[in-house]
Design a protein around this nucleic acid. Structure first.
Lengths: 230, 230
DNA sequence: TATTTTTTGTGTAAAAAATACGCAATAATA
DNA sequence: TATTATTGCGTATTTTTTACACAAAAAATA
């Protein structure tokens, strides 16, 4: 019963979803790639993704493929662009609805299925399958824009972090340097941070303060947007 | 020879493009709709759009359909979201790659083909075909966001316009009121405006100053983005 | 046509926000 | 143990934003 065929009166493109997964290791931005096990581009690295099923939305398909190929679960993926170049796949006309997500790197369990999944620093990414180089550039531009207009970090940093770690993240994405004190002031004034464990006032140690995100404020700002100058 | 069929080993969704066209009449934001001539939703209003051809990108398809259905040509359309709900079309699984564009209303020539095209104010839009209500809400949100982060107006206003007209546009989109003098200062400081026809200094008439856009600065700011608070 | 209403040009003082920057103590590294 | 880097802490200065009034001209209305 492998001979089932699907017949249409007009030509239809195939449709895939792809996921650009960003991580952060405390120093630089990383991307999660998988090594393709089948043709075309067998052996090449690519973003996790695959064909959309007829009973799922693009977001559902993206999450499903992401889980199947990397073991990542419960990730908020967001559609950012649909790539429609006519010749982007050698087999047939294939559109891909590209998504991106920010995740904590430790959430990627190198499970069985995910044997082929691996993190790469942005500037060490190999040549990618299909038009995934193009997708990568667009996703990176998207992230850079997003960080200027909405908070980032909740999804990328550990639950408790220092101001320096947060600053490193911003500097890594934007490729700029901020004044340490002004950066901290700006972030604190946004109101999205709360001090995690207040040191005893009488313990005159010089250990960095720890913060966590104020989820409600974070969500509000993510919704409303702001403008971070640089 | 009408019996051609297209056969695939796996099911494929159909793919359409749609165009949300924004106009501005000096007072309020308008949207361009067409009345559907065929089933499903025959007679209902909808955004211009149609099935993607196999030899064109989404943007090309959107422009082609837009021209066929409204006569609009040489419009910069921009993809903003792909709608993938499973049941959004009663015929079969259909995804639509939605685009939007800002146009000068006078550019819409009510040509023969475009007999069915008509402008509607945002709050007078009838119930729409398919999930186009949903598309409309998302497009409007997109426009509201865009106006906060990038300049708008070049594509919507006549070539020469007054500061009040520009302010009306911003107030219409954002549904807020600005202080006239502060709004003008802010806009002028952005550097995207140039005075169109300087009045003779000795003619003490109180006719509004006219402006046009500085295309280079406008393009730069559109690229870089800014943040307009409100 | 006379009267009323709306729109326009113009500028400043006060408040708020952003920026640049130094020092001493502690922690990490060599 | 000595050196280097990181951390906490706060202020003076500059820049940006905001609030606001009046008189003349144009448009609308009576």
């Amino acid at each position: 019963m492998n001979e089932q065929m699907y017949v249409y009166k007009y030509p239809h493109p195939a449709v895939t979803t792809d996921c650009v997964i960003f991580g952060f290791d405390g120093v630089s931005i990383k991307l999660l790639l998988i090594q393709r096990g089948i043709e075309p581009y067998k052996g090449a690295w690519a973003f996790p993704g695959g064909f959309l099923r007829m009973d799922e939305t693009a977001e559902e398909g993206a999450k499903r493929e992401l889980f199947e190929e990397t073991g990542l679960k419960d990730v908020q993926v967001e559609q950012f662009y649909t790539f429609t170049s006519v010749d982007r796949d050698p087999r047939e006309r294939v559109l891909t609805i590209a998504h991106y997500a920010l995740v904590r790197m430790k959430d990627v369990v190198g499970g069985d299925d995910a044997a082929g999944a691996q993190w790469f620093a942005y500037d060490e990414i190999p040549s990618l399958a299909f038009d995934h180089d193009h997708i990568l550039r667009k996703a990176m531009a998207h992230l850079k824009e997003r960080i200027c207009f909405r908070p980032i970090g909740f999804e990328l940093l550990p639950e408790v972090f220092t101001m320096s770690e947060l600053q490193n993240l911003y500097e890594a994405v934007l490729e700029v340097k901020f004044d340490r004190r002004n950066f901290a002031n700006k972030m604190l004034k946004l109101g999205i941070l709360i001090e995690a464990e207040k040191r005893a006032a009488d313990a005159p140690t010089r250990v960095p303060n720890k913060y966590r995100f104020n989820a409600a404020k974070y969500a509000e700002l993510k919704q409303r947007g702001f403008r971070l100058e640089f």
